[in-house]
Amino acid sequence: MNMTISREDVEYVAALARLELTEPEIQEYTEQLNSILDYAAMLERLDTDDVVPTAHAVPIHNVLREDQVRPSINHAKALRNAPDGDEGFFRVPRISLT
């Protein structure tokens, strides 16, 4: 297998996604991601010189709405699925910047 994705890549992406991985998981995901990329590499065999880059999978554009206010939802509804809340605020645990 072509090892395009290194274990450092997996650790880096896991950190970005705030995932804590065990050693066996790191190995497993490194292998899985590489095999996915290998499979997708088939596409590289196609000649795409004359193909414009795709910005969107569905061939439509300019789906717009008029600037008219529509009712919002109330506190109770907004917070119904929130793990924690207080006086209409969502409450989140300590935010660490580092």
Binding site: A78, D86, F89, F90, R91, V92, P93, R94, I95, L97
Partner: peptide, 12 residues
Amino acid sequence: TISTSNESSVDY
């Protein structure tokens, strides 16, 4: 400050 705070309230 943000670093001494235990929790934060969010208004969207």
